[in-house]
């Protein structure tokens, strides 16, 4: 087996991770709203090396009309990874994984958007992963939530999410690629922080009940931090510079 593919040590003797972070430390985050002119709302969300651009169109009339719902908006969500987002070219055709993630993200967004306000209409949400380095589903979800806010679509709350995992038996916040690949567990959680509601919760791997409790607490802490950054990004766009 090649050296590069051997399992690295995820936690060093000082208790730091492969990228030098403490176990409860987030990756650096950058959020920018209104990056696309043609979309009704758009945002770029960066978390460490993971970069996602999201665009929102609507609410608008639903075509074909028989697919419209009489009591709420239909959300059409596409999560997609660009061919250049990974180290080996990714086939641009939507994979089974991307279709599933689109569905998971759609369901998370449906619980945040006040879909009942726009019956018979549709909202299109597009997310393109520009660079993938673990946590793309959550970064995509957050990018979409920021783009929806940018589009002025009524929502219950912004969505903030973070993954908690296990690296060499230690609970770590906001996994990177190495921890995602070789770690013991991966648990992405997304919430509407000010309502204290969970909109996305998945777990890959194994955790004891006690570990799960601790992981939830850790995630909540990270989510609170991200939520503040999201609010700051929105305020920055609207509050005066002059």
């Amino acid at each position: 087996m090649l050296a590069a593919q051997q399992r690295p040590r995820l936690i060093d003797e000082r208790g730091l991770r492969t990228d030098g972070r403490r176990p409860d430390e987030l990756r650096p985050i950058r959020i920018e709203l209104g990056v696309l002119k043609n979309a009704d709302g758009s945002a770029i969300f960066e978390m460490g090396n993971t970069k996602v651009i999201a665009a929102v169109y609507g609410p608008k009339e639903m075509h074909p009309r028989h697919m419209a719902l009489p009591d709420r908006t239909v959300l059409r969500v596409r999560y997609h990874m660009t061919p250049f987002s990974t180290d080996e070219r990714k086939n641009p055709a939507p994979s089974r994984r991307e279709i599933e993630l689109s569905k998971v993200i759609r369901e998370a967004l449906e619980s945040a958007i006040l879909t009942e306000l726009f019956p018979r209409a549709t909202i299109d949400v597009f997310m393109e992963v520009l660079q993938a380095d673990a946590g793309t589903r959550l970064v995509s979800l957050m990018a979409a939530s920021m783009a929806l806010a940018d589009a002025g679509i009524p929502m219950r709350d912004l969505i903030a999410g973070v993954a908690v995992g296990k690296a060499d038996g230690v609970l770590v916040l906001d996994l990177n690629e190495a921890e995602d690949m070789w770690g013991g567990a991966d648990m992405p959680i997304a919430m509407m922080p000010s309502l204290n509601k969970v909109v996305l919760f998945q777990l890959n791997g194994t955790m004891t009940p006690e570990e799960l409790r601790q992981a939830l607490e850790l995630a909540k802490k990270g989510i609170a931090e991200i939520y503040q950054l999201e609010k700051k990004a929105i305020k920055e766009k609207f509050v005066e510079v002059s």
């Binding site: 609507g58 609410p59 002025g152 679509i153 929502m155 609207f238």
Partner: peptide, 21 residues
């Protein structure tokens, strides 16, 4: 939505700052 809260004699409304519709 992102907007300005307008408080007027006991009630309030939100004036949105964004929205293309």
């Amino acid at each position: 939505v992102v907007g300005v809260v307008d408080v007027k004699n006991g009630t309030f409304t939100v004036i949105p700052l964004k929205g293309s519709k």
